[in-house]
Structures are given as C-alpha cells and as structure tokens.
C-alpha cells in the first residue's frame, strides 16, 4: 500500500505547511492546525474514562446530528428506492409523475427549509423533513432510471420461468438498478450533510451546525475550525464506508475503472444523478 502511505505523507506535509503559514500570519481567523486540534480535544475528548473520554458535547450535539443525518438518509433511501422501482417499471405512472419529479428535483433543497420551518416549527421533525425531502430525488430518479434499464430479454426470461413477484423485484429489478441506486445514494449522502448543517444553522441550539455558529458568535475560531474539520471528516468517513459497501454489493460487475481520485464520486455517477 505505497499509494496509501504516499497519500498520507502528502497530507502530513500539507498540514505542516499550513501550521507554519498560520503561525507566521498570526491571523485570528485562521488558527494553526495545532490550535484546532487542541480545541477539538478540549471540545470532544476531554471526558472521563467511563464515557471513553468523550465529552457531553459529543453526546448532546455530535451524536444527535449524525443520528438525524443517518435516519434521514435511510428514510430517503427506502422511500426513494421503493417508489423508484414502482415508477420505473410502470410506463403509465412515469408518464403522469415524470414532469412533477423533474420539477421537484429542480428545487434547490435549501429553499425548502423555510417551508418546513413554517410547517413543523423548529426541531428534529423539521430537520428530518428537510433532509428527507431534499435528498430523496437523486435516489428516486436514479432508481427509476436503473429499473427501466432491465432489458427485454431479462424481462422475458423472468416471464417465461414465471418467477414470483418478489423474486422479480428483488432478484431482477433491484440488482439491475443497483449501480444507479448507489450513484444516487452517494450524491444524496453528501447532500444530506449539507442539509443537516443548514437545518442546524437556522436558529436551533442543538447539533454540529449550531455549535459552529455559537463558536463564531463567541469568536472562538479554533472551535469553529474544529467543527469544520469534523464535518469534513464525517463526510469523508461516510463516503468511504458507502463506497466500501458499494464495492461489495456490486462485486459481480466486470472490473470497471474508477475515478482518478479514488474515494470520490465518479463523474459518471454524478452526471447520472444530475440527468433526468
């Protein structure tokens, strides 16, 4: 794994450069990484041994944030895939719903935050609604696309052998759509992180976003940076885990080239999610 070493090597060098530059500049807005790390340790890892040294902040803010994100993502995934499979296999339904779906997908998800604020007022409900409603479209549309891609011969093969409905859906349509579904899930995952933050920035006092805003208001810039880094790490970890799952789930595919940056989304996948 020399590539792995090399990557982290470059990373370490870059952090060192950043440290030097930040110390040299002495800009309050841009603290050096060491201060950020200190702030992070203070914020999250100064707890007692019985909580594995995690602080209350972790349990009161980080965990709820991540919970909302994952729950929202799972709900959107289940709803999007289920609806997508149904719509994708029904010519008629798609004719009726297609234009509506295209429009719903076109609404920039953050624009929905105020709508849900009015409906649910503040709180977890509103945040979940924002996440689910904002990210369900890429999953849904990708699933529709994938479900439609089952070719005629496979449809006929399944019909000839009179496979039961469940086998048809879970044994044929779902696996055929799986590559597209995963592309949609990946796009939705990064979008859900965005929406999680936004929904926490609009006047709640709970969650990573709210903590970040608090740090900014109190001019605790190292804390604010720590939250930024935390969000980056979360995004990285989720994406890596999802890619690993995808890799296993789609192991049956002939070896395909991956995007040059390895763990990031392939443009083809992004493009798919963007297309109607």
């Amino acid at each position: 794994m020399s590539g792995f070493l090399q990557r982290w090597g470059v990373f370490v060098v870059l952090v060192a450069l950043w440290e030097a530059a930040a110390r040299f500049a002495e800009d309050a807005y841009f603290p050096p990484p060491s201060r950020i790390a200190e702030a992070a340790a203070e914020l999250w890892f100064s707890g007692t041994a019985d909580t594995l040294f995690l602080t209350d902040v972790v349990f009161d803010h980080v965990v709820p944030s991540v919970q909302r994100l994952l729950i929202g993502w799972v709900i959107a995934g289940v709803v999007g895939v289920a609806l997508g499979l149904a719509l994708g296999r029904s010519e008629r339904a798609m004719q009726y719903c297609g234009p509506l779906l295209t429009f719903m997908r076109s609404i920039p998800p953050p624009a929905l935050v105020p709508v849900f604020l009015l409906i649910f007022t503040l709180g977890t409900q509103m945040q979940l609604a924002t996440i689910v409603f904002g990210i369900v479209w890429p999953i849904l549309l990708n699933t529709v696309d994938g479900a439609r891609s089952v070719d005629r011969t496979k449809v006929e093969t399944s019909a000839v052998f009179r496979v039961p409905r469940t086998q048809w859906i879970f044994g044929v349509v779902l696996p055929a759509a799986a590559p597209k579904i995963f592309a949609g899930l990946r796009v939705s995952l990064s979008l859900s992180l965005v929406l999680m933050v936004i929904s926490e920035l609009v006047g709640t006092d709970n969650g990573i976003g709210a903590q970040m805003l608090l740090a900014q208001r109190e001019f605790e810039f190292p804390d604010m940076w720590a939250e930024i880094v935390l969000l980056g790490v979360l995004g990285y970890v989720f994406n890596t885990v999802l890619l690993a799952v995808e890799h296993r789930a789609l192991a049956w595919q002939p070896k395909q080239e991956h995007a040059p940056t390895g763990t990031t989304t392939t443009p083809a996948a992004v493009a798919t999610a963007g297309a109607k």
């Binding site: 011969t153 006929e156 093969t157 000839v160 052998f161 044929v172 696996p175 049956w252």
Partner: peptide, 28 residues
C-alpha cells in the same frame, strides 16, 4: 415451458453466478 433465447448473453443475469443463474427458475 422453457425458452432458450437467441440473445443468450442478455438472458443470463450478470449479478448471479453461473450456478445461481441455473437455479434461478427453480426457486419457485
């Protein structure tokens, strides 16, 4: 009734191993 389709490569399911492809219609 069984059919061996002309387009045999599309008629096989790429996500199933050969063994599972043969088992596919027997599940019922």
């Amino acid at each position: 009734l069984a059919v061996v389709f002309q387009d045999y490569s599309r008629s096989l399911f790429p996500w199933l191993s050969v063994q599972r492809n043969v088992e596919f219609p027997l599940k019922r």
